[in-house]
Structure formats: structure tokens, C-alpha cells
Design a binder for these strands. Structure first.
Length: 665
DNA sequence: ATTCGGACTTAGTACCTTCGCA
DNA sequence: TGCGAAGGTACTAAGTCCGAAT
């Protein structure tokens, strides 16, 4: 596939480019306004709710919207579900090699594409597959209201195990019961991973029926510096008040970083720092350039060295403590299941580091206290306790949202949340739904494109194109396909590209490393398409050199081995005895082994070189339908671990479980 | 009709851990 | 067994979407 192809695509794509500095600046302006003008109102508005124990949101809107979304997919048949269930039985212990091959196999459908003038690949098979999918796959993401026999059984079993757990849709969980149940279960080994994707989904905007958690972990309190670490102003030692000292340490810790030299950063920092000073300090400290943080800076460097030099035992102790915190605060109970929380720690105070030329860089990000925190949980759960002597800002019970904890951050005035891990049901369902939406686009993308291409046929192509595209992205989309947004296009383009590339690049005769290289190349094509770039790692050149040295050494080794083989052969010819024959064999094997090693290294070098400025992570995690990768693994006998690490496997558990080798996006 | 803002998702990166090799 | 590199994770800024407010 040509580079042009990608460029075309990405232009049409969505217009959402991120590193456009002009845009940034404008945006910053906007925010500025927004907050000056509206923050007060917002605060007022909010205070209406403060300290109210209960706040039941009147949320018909959400409900209607979600209903709308889900009903799109209606038309699933029971047959469909049966098929689904069967799959699961077959593949429960997937290890890269499907236990049961389907005899009809995979019809290799992809013919090398000629990009059309719109830059998109249009598979000849497209038409056919559209129809098929309309018939079959359509129904995959819809609420499963009808309970199948098997799930019924399972449910019963679960009921016995967990005493009194109510199916989501029936009635409200009774107070307390569910909570204790959940905990009991959680403490036992979770023998079997919960397959939420086999269960029915909420259709009414409700995100959960029961939610219990222990609240956030606050940043550790500030520890004043030892008295021998001094701060100097204008060359003179000055003892800072604790408040001022803390903010000073934030700056001292960043001293090595370039942005502490930037005017904006220094200005913002100094302004905010002064706010934390006593009036005496304020009158003395008037010029940041006269401040000498170097002792502080040295002290922190020494500290981090000391941390590195800790003994194994000390390190272990810290690790254990972290683990304890994780176990205590890192999970919640949501609807009878223990789910991992993504970020249970409150962001610690520090200096704001915006990206690019952010006008607010250097501002003080203030410490979040319990009084800033809104807790969201079930009415009938055990509420998290604020630290002794403090109060939460509010405890609310809004089950139309997914967050557990929120607070308002002081730099932009935006809200920050504590939410669940990507492996959780609530995130997974959303992810799955996203890909289903993109697959729906696949079905009508030809029509949509034909339509807008028609509009382009006019003088002043460029301008019209742009105008139409913009109009299209901004206004039209929902009319063409409901739920269609720019993001859906992006997801669609990424996923379809991966699928095509995988089909084009993978050949079944290749060995595993070569296949993985193909996978990475396909992934890379997508990353380029989505413009996921990265700065080449600092150590790139060096590590590349190292690798090349290794390759050279290997080559030499290979040459030697070949020479030896040759002489062994000659020797065997003369001697004609068993011993020399054996020697030839073993030399042959050695050559083979070295050749393999060499190839592996070369593949690695290619891979790394091609990956220099491209970040694969984002597309892999956010835009590529994981079922495509899973299917590919199954089809070519690649262990899924080679493609997804542990975290990714957790996030994509649903896809790993449900996708077969013939899955088609 | 436009803007705002809450709730999410996506993205970049610093740091920590593990791996592979001499 | 120590070291650098690769891989993985945590953190948090920034973007998107969409309903509500203006």
C-alpha cells in the first residue's frame, strides 16, 4: 500500500489532528474565557448540590439516547446466539491454536488493492460481505435480553455460590447483602474470569445498580526539608515557611528540565508561589532569578539515588506496601463483581506541565483535600470514609455515570475522575460498542463516499472538497448513519486498514518471527494513517548500532561455520568414515542454527528501524478492533501473547474469547 | 444557533520492571 | 551478576461527543 494512500485517508479521516500549535493557542484562549466567565456560575450551581446526601439525577435524556444506540442492532436471532455459545465452548482455553478447526476454513479474500482516487481500498468482496454481515454479525452488540439455557444454568450456579445475587435487570439489590457477598467472593480466588460479554446489558442509560468502593488515596502529606538543606535568596540563607517551601520544592525538582527556563513557566510559577508565601516572605522574595534552589535540587537527587541503592528487602517492603494499597483501594464492587480501578490515587500537587507552549505552564496545581472530593456510590453501599477530621464535599448516588470519585482541578477548572480499569465490564462494553459502530460504517461507507464524491465534481475542487468534507464532518454525519461521528471514521479506517494489511502481508509459509514482523508492519501502517508519531527514542541510534554490531558478528560467525562445514565435507569425502560424516551433519546444523539467529536479528533490525518515529501503542489500544488481531493469531497459529501483553489481554478479554479465526471486521 | 461543560476516550511520556547478554 | 535496552505501567493532559444552558 502506498504512502499516498494513507495521506489521502487521513485527510478524509476526520480532520482531527492533534499537534497543530495554532489550534492549541486558540483553544487556550477559549478556555481562558470559558472559565473567567462561567466559573462563578458553575460554582454557584454546584453549591446547590453540596452536602446533599442524595442526588438522584433526572436523566431521561441519557436513557433515551442509549436506547437509541442499542436498538440499532436489533434483529439478532437465537441461532446467532447459539453459534456464539458454541464458539465459546470450543475456544475456552485459547492458546493460539484453535482446538477445533472449521472445515470450511478461511477463504482468503483479499486481493492486492489498487487504491481508488479517494484513497480508500474497496475490496471486490465488499458487496458480498456486506450482505452476509447484515445477516449474521449485525446482532453482535445488542442487549441480550433473552437468557439462553446455558446462561440460565450458569446464573443459577452463581446464585448458589453467592447466595443472593440478583440479575441486573430484575430488582434493586437489597441493602448490604450484595456488598458482603461481593467481598466474600472477591477474597476467594476468582477461579473463573467473569465473562461480562455473555451477559445482558443495561439499555436504559443505567451504568450500574450497585457500587461500593473505599474512596481515593490522597497524596502523602508534605514532609518539610531537613534543616541542613537550605534555600538562598540573593545569596543569603532564608528559612521558608512550610507552605512556601513545599511549592519551592516542586520547582527545585524540575530544575533540570528545560521548561524551568521558559519565561511563561517562570512567570506563572512565581506568581502562584507568592500566593503561598507569608507576607514577610512576599515582601522579601521579589525576583525569581535571585532564588537559589540548588541545595534542594541536590537533596532530591541524592534521595533518588538513595532509593535506587536500597537493598532488596527495602525495595520489597515498598512493593508490598503498594500491593496492600492496591488491594485495599484499587478495587470496587460493581454489580456483584470486583472490578479494578484505573487511577485510585488523587493527583499530587505540583507544577502544571501543559504540552507544547501552554500558557498555564508552571502554575501551581494545588493539593486536593477531602473537602474537594465528590464520592459516587450506591445508596445502599458502605460509603467510603473521609480521613479523620475531614468531610467529603458531597456523596452522591448517580448510577447514570461510571465514575467513583471526582474533583475539580484548579488549572483549567475541569473535572477529574476516578474510573475503572479498561478490563472492567463498563469500559469493555463501551469499547466493543465502538467497534461495532465502526463496522456499521463499513456497510454504508461506499454509499456515503459515493455521495460526497459526487459533490466534489465541480470547479475549484480543492476548496469544494474541503468545504464539503468539513460540512460533512461537522453537520451531516448523523443523517447518513446515526451514531456516525468523526471518531467512528477513524476507528473504521484504522481497523479496516489493519485487516487489509494483515491479509496482504502475512504469508502462511513464514515462520513466527516473520509473521510477527508482518503484524507489526500492518500495525505500523495504521499508526501512520492515524498519525501516531513519536520522537525517536534518545538511545535509538546507539541501540541500532549495537544491533548492527551483533548482526555483523553473527554474519562472521556464519561465514566461519560455513567454512568449517566445507572443510568437514572435504574431509568426509577423503576419509569416508562414520565419524567424519557425523561431523558434517553437526556442522550443517550449526550453520542452520546460525542462519536462523541471523535472520531473527535482521528482522528485529528492520522492525526497529521502521518503528523509529512511530508509536504503535495508541492505535493498538484504541483504534484496532482486537478481534482482527485475535482472528489473525488463530488463523496463523501465533500465540496471542506475542501480540498482546498481559494488560492488553485483560482489556481485550472479550475479543480473545469471542473472535474466531474467520472473524471479519 | 451557539456556547458551555460533564463525562468519557485518547495520547504522550516519565518512570519502573524485566529481559537478554557479556 | 551487573548493565543497558526493551517492555510495561502509571499518570495526567488533551481531545471528542453531546445534552443543557444561554
Amino acid at each position: 500500500m502506498s504512502g499516498d494512500h494513507f495521506h489521502n485517508d487521513s485527510q478524509i479521516d476526520s480532520g482531527s489532528r492533534h499537534n497543530d500549535s495554532h489550534k492549541h493557542k486558540d483553544k487556550y484562549k477559549d478556555k481562558e474565557h470559558k472559565h473567567k466567565d462561567h466559573k462563578k456560575d458553575k460554582e454557584r450551581e454546584k453549591s446547590k448540590y453540596s452536602n446533599s446526601e442524595h442526588r438522584d439525577s433526572s436523566d431521561k435524556k441519557h436513557r433515551d439516547k442509549d436506547k437509541e444506540r442499542l436498538k440499532l442492532k436489533d434483529g439478532s436471532s437465537d441461532k446467532q446466539k447459539d453459534k456464539h455459545r458454541e464458539k465459546k465452548k470450543e475456544e475456552r482455553s485459547f492458546d493460539g491454536k484453535p482446538k477445533k478447526e472449521k472445515e470450511n476454513g478461511f477463504e482468503s479474500p483479499f486481493i492486492k488493492s489498487e487504491p481508488e482516487n479517494d484513497g480508500f481500498y474497496h475490496s471486490p468482496k465488499h458487496e458480498k460481505s456486506l450482505k452476509r454481515e447484515r445477516d449474521d454479525d449485525d446482532a453482535e452488540f445488542k442487549p441480550k435480553k433473552i437468557k439462553t439455557e446455558e446462561s440460565e444454568k450458569k446464573a443459577k450456579k452463581r446464585k448458589q455460590e453467592e447466595e443472593d445475587i440478583k440479575p441486573k435487570k430484575k430488582t434493586k439489590d437489597k441493602k448490604g447483602e450484595a456488598a458482603t457477598d461481593g467481598k466474600k467472593k472477591a477474597k476467594k480466588e476468582p477461579e473463573e474470569k467473569w465473562k461480562w460479554w455473555e451477559e445482558e446489558r443495561y439499555t436504559d442509560g443505567v451504568k450500574w445498580k450497585f457500587l461500593e468502593h473505599k474512596g481515593p488515596v490522597f497524596a502523602p502529606p508534605y514532609e518539610p526539608l531537613p534543616s541542613n538543606v537550605k534555600f538562598y535568596y540573593d545569596g543569603k540563607h532564608m528559612k521558608l515557611s512550610p507552605g512556601a517551601e513545599e511549592v519551592a520544592t516542586f520547582f527545585a525538582k524540575m530544575l533540570d528540565h528545560e521548561y524551568t527556563t521558559k519565561d511563561v513557566f517562570r512567570k506563572n510559577f512565581f506568581k502562584d508561589w507568592r500566593k503561598e508565601m507569608t507576607s514577610e516572605e512576599k515582601s522579601k522574595l521579589t525576583d525569581l532569578n535571585k532564588c537559589d534552589f540548588s541545595e534542594m535540587s541536590e537533596y532530591f537527587k541524592a534521595q533518588s539515588e538513595a532509593r535506587k541503592a536500597m537493598t532488596k528487602e527495602e525495595k520489597l517492603k515498598i512493593k508490598e506496601e503498594n500491593e496492600r494499597l492496591l488491594q485495599e483501594y484499587g478495587f470496587c464492587i460493581m454489580d456483584n463483581h470486583k472490578e479494578r480501578i484505573a487511577n485510585f490515587r488523587i493527583e499530587p500537587p505540583g507544577l502544571f506541565r501543559g504540552r507544547g507552549d501552554h500558557p498555564k505552564m508552571g502554575m501551581l496545581k494545588r493539593r486536593i483535600r477531602p473537602e474537594d472530593i465528590i464520592i459516587n456510590c450506591s445508596k445502599d453501599s458502605k460509603y467510603p470514609k473521609p480521613p479523620p477530621g475531614t468531610k467529603w464535599k458531597e456523596v452522591r448516588h448517580d448510577n447514570k455515570v461510571t465514575w467513583l470519585v471526582s474533583w475539580t482541578e484548579n488549572i483549567q477548572g475541569s473535572i477529574k475522575y476516578i474510573m475503572l480499569n479498561p478490563s472492567s465490564r463498563i469500559k469493555g462494553e463501551k469499547d466493543w460498542q465502538k467497534y461495532e459502530m465502526a463496522r456499521r460504517l463499513k456497510k454504508c461507507v461506499d454509499r456515503i463516499r459515493a455521495q460526497y464524491r459526487e459533490d466534489w465534481k465541480s470547479k475549484e475542487m480543492r476548496i469544494r472538497q474541503r468545504a464539503v468534507a468539513l460540512y460533512f464532518i461537522d453537520k451531516h454525519l448523523q443523517e447518513l448513519m446515526d451514531g456516525l461521528t468523526a471518531k467512528v471514521f477513524r476507528t473504521y479506517n484504522a481497523s479496516i486498514t489493519l485487516q487489509q494489511q494483515l491479509n496482504e502481508l502475512t504469508s502462511s509459509e513464514d515462520n513466527v518471527p516473520a509473521k510477527i514482523l508482518s503484524y507489526n508492519r500492518a500495525n505500523r501502517a495504521v499508526a501512520i494513517l492515524c498519525n501516531h508519531q513519536r520522537a525517536p527514542p534518545k538511545t535509538f541510534e546507539k541501540s541500532m548500532q549495537n544491533l548492527q554490531t551483533k548482526i555483523d558478528a553473527k554474519k562472521e560467525q556464519l561465514a566461519d561455520a560455513k567454512r568449517e562445514l566445507k572443510s568437514a565435507k572435504a574431509d568426509a569425502k577423503v576419509r569416508r568414515d562414520e565419524k567424519s560424516k557425523k561431523a558434517v551433519e553437526s556442522k550443517k546444523k550449526a550453520v542452520q542454527r546460525i542462519e536462523e539467529q541471523l535472520m531473527k536479528l535482521e528482522v528485529q533490525a528492520t522492525d526497529r528501524e521502521e518503528n523509529k518515529q512511530i508509536a504503535l501503542g495508541t492505535s493498538k489500544l484504541n483504534y484496532l478492533d482486537p478481534r482482527i488481531s485475535v482472528a489473525w493469531c488463530k488463523k496463523f497459529g501465533i500465540p496471542i501473547e506475542k501480540i498482546y501483553n498481559k494488560t492488553q489481554r485483560e482489556k481485550f478479554a472479550w475479543a480473545i474469547d469471542m473472535a474466531e479465526k474467520d472473524y471479519e471486521f
